[in-house]
Design a protein around this nucleic acid. Structure first.
Lengths: 257, 257
DNA sequence: GGATCGCACTGATCCATATCAAAAGCAGCA
DNA sequence: TGCTGCTTTTGATATGGATCAGTGCGATCC
């Protein structure tokens, strides 16, 4: 099997399709190869890992990991989107992140899960036993290296999110979110501003958005309307946003003045 | 040299005193050994790593790592406390965490630092070159394993903090903070509630507290006063808090009702 | 002991966002 | 085509915490 170019950083979501390696191909959005782990491992190692994984397909709205439960497994998403969240007894909910193709779920756990995970669309996953994780690391240090990269990248994102939740206004949160989501889907996190008129697809409901940004759905809706009225974005339908003036959004998001 | 008991999880801060191993001893607060990395490495490996580290001492209020700068080094704290934060151009600040003895700083970076770091008291650190990190990992996989544990634990904490910042009220934030700080210093993060009348030492100013909890100093002050008036805490002086009724604090913190 | 300075606390007011209420859009379905 | 139920948007009002404005208080210095 041919070798693939090294992936320099984790700006692009790291994908492993352990149970289905032939499906690894150029990303239709950005052209990069979502190989991640596969890239770091020999064929022999891959065979081993594939056998350790269980491939599953889940329908929309399935809660497959619950905060407080024993952490038996960790997962790697192959397709679809998953929301990760924590909740308070009275129902208040904070979404801590979204996991798309290539993302890992359930790494940041001790013996219990610290977040819940629920599918937002039909989702394909590879499931790994946490118990066997240590043993896998012993045999395949490359796996561990990749996971360390992933964890450190997650940490960077969560620090950004803390700034957003702790100190930004509603409008700034929405602007920040639109840009970061564009990064995520359009330029594969190159750090560049999306081009004008970039079209975003949001699999999220307004409720998800509110729970991710620490706002209410009404405030989310009003802020989006405000950006629309100012001519910075267009909203053709609920699940699409067009970024007419990304630079202006960036100025709002980073409170540049 | 004698071998030390395995450290089962990362609930206890992981300390490495690479440049000064003899100082590793039983924690006066909890009796556990703050060995962390040392525990995972052989003496021979330790000697290598010690030579890779530069030991430094910094005075109070020293900004030694700035967001946006090239990420040359990462650090391990030996003594003292460091605040990690992100700031917006207009001066708003969000503290993303505090690093005490045994904590790592600068791991979650790509080629640039994503947070700034500033000492809150006189601090002793070991400094490592990031450039040499990969090479160190090749030679000493145990180092990587430990860092993965650390990163995953940080992730757990930051998810908790997102819930706090996005969804909790001022009073809930203060109560949550007091309990988590107690965990940190008193029972070495065993997950248990601190005992009644546990005394906390806060090296933080009210401004730090506000910037960590996403509040203003006035609200922090008012919330602490409210808890005092209700008889849940006592505040002998600015840098000390006595938790008279931890269970009641927990009820507030987790919105149990 | 008194003056000065930097924080912390407390009170009064304001405002950004939450909450409450209703209308509008939209998908599924008979 | 219209009915039903759900989500989103928009409008009116309420409120938690921010902002503004003192006051208090302990440390340092003379």
């Amino acid at each position: 099997m041919s070798s693939f170019g090294k992936i320099a950083s984790l700006r692009h979501p790291v994908a492993i399709n352990l149970a289905d390696r032939p499906s690894a191909s150029a990303c239709e959005d950005c052209g990069a190869r979502h190989l991640g782990l596969c890239d770091a491992l020999s064929d022999e190692e891959l065979v081993f890992l594939s056998s350790a994984a269980h491939r599953m397909t889940l329908p929309t709205g399935r809660l497959f990991l619950e905060e407080g439960d024993a952490a038996q497994f960790f997962y790697n998403v192959n397709s679809g989107t998953v929301r990760l969240f924590k909740a308070l007894p009275d129902g208040r909910r904070q979404i801590t992140g979204f996991a798309g193709p290539g993302h890992f779920i359930g790494l940041a756990a001790t013996d219990m899960n610290v977040v819940s995970a629920e599918t937002m669309e039909p989702v394909q996953l590879c499931r790994f036993s946490r118990a066997g994780m240590r043993a896998m690391f012993e045999e395949y240090p490359a796996l561990e290296r990749k996971l360390l990269d992933v964890a450190m990248h997650e940490l960077v994102l969560s620090q950004q999110q803390m700034l957003l939740l702790g100190r930004k206004t509603a409008l700034e949160r929405i602007a920040s979110f639109l840009l970061s989501w564009a990064q995520r889907q359009e330029n594969c996190n190159t750090g560049k501003l999306p081009r004008p008129n970039a079209k975003l697809t949001l699999p999220l409901s307004r409720t998800d958005l509110a729970d991710y940004l620490g706002l209410t759905i009404e405030t989310v809706s009003r802020s989006l309307s405000a950006l629309k009225k100012e001519g910075l974005i267009e909203i053709p339908n609920i699940h699409e946003v067009v970024l007419l003036r990304p630079q202006a959004l960036e100025n709002i998001a980073e409170a540049a003045n």
